[in-house]
Amino acid sequence: MKLFVALLAVGLPALAAAHSWIVCTDYLENNGWYWDEAKCRAWPRSAHRHDIRFGPFGQHRGFLNKLDNHPEETALCTHPRNDDTEYTDLTPMAAYYLGQKVVLTHPANNHVADVRCKNNTNIVDTENIIFSVDQAEPQDPCCIDSEKLLVVEDLGISPYGPNIDPVITITYPKPGFQNVPKFCEDEANSMGTYNFTIPMDMKPGRHTFVWKWIRSPRVSPFTTCWEADVFATKAERDAHYQSTGQTIVDVWDFYQINTIVNGEIVDPIDPVDPIISG
């Protein structure tokens, strides 16, 4: 028994480092350094059940969804779709428009190769994909290889490897999961961002979106699901957000409004305040 406990204790850090989930499904700052709840307009399915909004960033109450091994038999989403119960006024559903750049946030959970705080550049990142489900489908698909899933965007993978130039590990922004500029300040709870574009040929209406991350080929995928109303134009999307009290400000990029020298911000340009602009 003592040996089992010891082995379990050794294994726990590896487990803690191997998971993540999407926190915000419409964030106002691309490539940002620090999480700011005021910049989040929308939340994933069932966020209210698991204190995604109200707990500290990077923590949750049972939100993690990990698929089984291929071929998957478990559901893509932690909870079945029910738009009337899985979103609230405090954790609302997203609204997008065709051609919009959408920013998502996720916690790092120790999984970034950054030589400023890790002596390991071989932190693997294997696959980061955004799917949508054909809106004609009334049910969530079961499996990540389902024909009902349509690839919206391949988010790329972060650079890693035993022989990689260390400078690459501290150069941001990055593609893939490890786009976490302030990782070394809080390896577990620091914020990472992705961005993807809503296809111009997507049919307007309500869609289910699925994020899939494979950390390593030896680890089964992690997923997060959310719904979003997709509008044909920004004006239509803006009218919807205004009717629900949301800001209509566009996403800005952290590196476009700040000059960074040696990891410090110099000459910042304040973006439009997302709280007062809407």
Rank of each mutant, 00 (worst) to 15 (best):
Met1Phe: 11
Leu3Met: 11
Leu8Ile: 12
Leu8Met: 14
Pro13His: 10
Pro13Trp: 14
Ala16His: 11
Ala16Glu: 11
Thr25Pro: 11
Asp26Gln: 04
Asn30Ser: 13
Gly32Lys: 05
Gly32Arg: 00
Asp36Ser: 02
Ile52Lys: 01
Arg53Trp: 04
Gly55Ser: 13
Gly58Ala: 09
Pro71Gly: 11
Glu73Lys: 13
Thr74His: 13
His79Ser: 11
Asp84Cys: 04
Thr85Lys: 05
Asp89Phe: 09
Leu90His: 13
Pro92Trp: 11
Leu98Gly: 02
Lys101Phe: 09
Pro107Arg: 06
Asn109Cys: 09
Asn120His: 13
Thr121Lys: 09
Ile130Cys: 05
Gln135Gly: 06
Gln135Arg: 08
Glu137Lys: 06
Asp140Glu: 14
Leu149Val: 06
Ile157Val: 15
Pro162Met: 15
Asn163Leu: 13
Ile164Ala: 05
Asp165Trp: 10
Pro173Phe: 11
Pro175Phe: 08
Phe177Trp: 01
Asn179Asp: 14
Phe183Gln: 04
Asp186Gly: 01
Ala188Lys: 02
Asn189Glu: 00
Ser190Tyr: 02
Met191Glu: 10
Asn195Gln: 12
Ile198Met: 07
Met200Ile: 15
Gly205Arg: 12
Thr208Pro: 05
Thr208Ile: 14
Phe209Gln: 00
Val210Thr: 03
Trp213His: 08
Ser216Lys: 09
Pro217Ile: 15
Arg218Asp: 07
Ser220Asp: 15
Pro221Leu: 02
Phe222Trp: 11
Thr224Trp: 09
Val230Pro: 12
Phe231Asn: 03
Ala232Thr: 01
Ala232Cys: 05
Asp238Trp: 07
Gln242Asp: 05
Thr247Leu: 07
Val249Ile: 12
Asp253Phe: 04
Gln256Asn: 13
Gly263Pro: 10
Val266Cys: 00
Ser277Gly: 11
